[in-house]
Simulated scan of single mutants.
Amino acid sequence: MPPHDTPAGPSARSRLVQAALRLFAEKGYEAAGTREIAEAAGANISAIRYYFGDKAGLYRAAFTEPMADLPARLNRERYAELPLAAALGQLFRDFLEPLKRGEDFRLVMKLHIREMIEPTGAWRHEIDAEIKPHHDALAMLLRRHLGTACPDTDIHRLAFAIMGMAVHFYAGQEIVAAIQPEILMDPAAIDILAERLSGYALSMITGEARRLAAQQQHAGG
C-alpha cells in the first residue's frame, strides 16, 4: 500500500494535493515546504516523491488537478452552430461553471493569481488548455457576426473586453462577496450572472458593429 494510504477515506495522494493547494495558495511555491504540506495532509514526506517525484510535481498537480473532474467545458463546434445570443449565453455558462465549486475553486483561483505574481511556468498549460480555447471560440463568434472586414486586432480587443467581464468574477470573488454576495451566492445566481453577462456582451458587440459601419461609411464618403 502506498505511504499512509488507508482502506477508507481520501488517499494520501488526494490529501497531499488538497493540502498543497491550500498552502501554495496561502504562502507561494517557495515559502510552502514539503514537510509542512505532508504534515497538513497527514502523510509521510516520502509520499510526495512516491506520487509526484518532487515539490515541482506536487505543485503542478495542485495547480491543475482540483478542477480536472469538471465536464469538458468547451465545444467550439457547438458555439458555431448557435445564434449569437445563444452562443454567448452558453459560452458564459461554461466559463463560469467552476465558480459553483465554492471553497475549492476559491483556493484554485488564489493559487492562479499567486502564480501571476510569482511565476513558476505553470500558467503556460492553463493558457493553452483553458484560456486560449475560450478566447479563440469567442473570436470566432465575433468574426462571424461582424464580418471578415473587421481588423483582427479589433476582434481580439473586443474578445478580451467581453471575457474580462467574466474574469473579474474569478479574480475578484472576495471583492464581490464583500460588496454584493448574492451575485455568487449559489449555482442559480451564477447562472443568472452568465445570462446578464451575455446581454452586456451583446450590447458591446452591437456598439462595435455601429462603429465599424460608421468607419466604413466615412471611408467610402
Rank of each mutant, 00 (worst) to 15 (best):
186 D>Q: 04
148 T>L: 07
83 P>E: 09
86 A>P: 10
205 I>L: 09
174 E>Q: 13
34 T>W: 14
176 V>N: 04
129 A>C: 09
118 E>N: 06
143 R>T: 08
28 G>D: 14
33 G>W: 03
73 R>E: 03
62 A>M: 03
220 G>I: 09
89 G>Q: 14
64 T>G: 01
16 L>M: 07
201 A>N: 05
34 T>S: 15
196 R>D: 13
85 A>K: 15
59 Y>W: 03
179 I>R: 04
176 V>K: 08
41 A>D: 03
162 I>P: 05
149 A>Q: 14
143 R>W: 04
219 A>M: 06
29 Y>P: 06
169 F>I: 08
109 M>I: 10
68 A>I: 07
218 H>Q: 15
124 R>N: 11
142 L>W: 06
208 E>I: 07
181 P>V: 05
93 R>D: 00
25 A>C: 07
219 A>Q: 14
52 F>M: 02
119 P>N: 10
92 F>E: 01
26 E>W: 10
81 E>V: 08
150 C>R: 11
116 M>C: 14
25 A>T: 02
214 A>N: 09
162 I>R: 01
67 M>Y: 03
191 D>L: 01
203 S>T: 08
110 K>T: 11
59 Y>E: 01
5 D>A: 01
159 A>K: 00
19 A>Q: 09
68 A>H: 13
44 N>W: 13
69 D>C: 12
126 E>Q: 13
90 Q>G: 09
18 Q>G: 14
95 F>K: 02
115 E>I: 08
184 L>H: 03
37 I>M: 06
70 L>V: 10
20 A>V: 09
61 A>E: 04
133 P>C: 01
161 A>I: 04
82 L>A: 09
74 L>A: 02
12 A>Y: 10
160 F>C: 03
50 Y>T: 02
95 F>I: 00
49 R>S: 15
129 A>T: 11
85 A>H: 15
61 A>D: 01
219 A>T: 05
200 Y>Q: 11
177 A>R: 14
159 A>C: 12
152 D>P: 03
172 G>F: 00
72 A>H: 10
9 G>I: 07
52 F>H: 01
187 P>N: 06
80 A>S: 11
219 A>S: 13
166 A>E: 09
97 E>T: 11
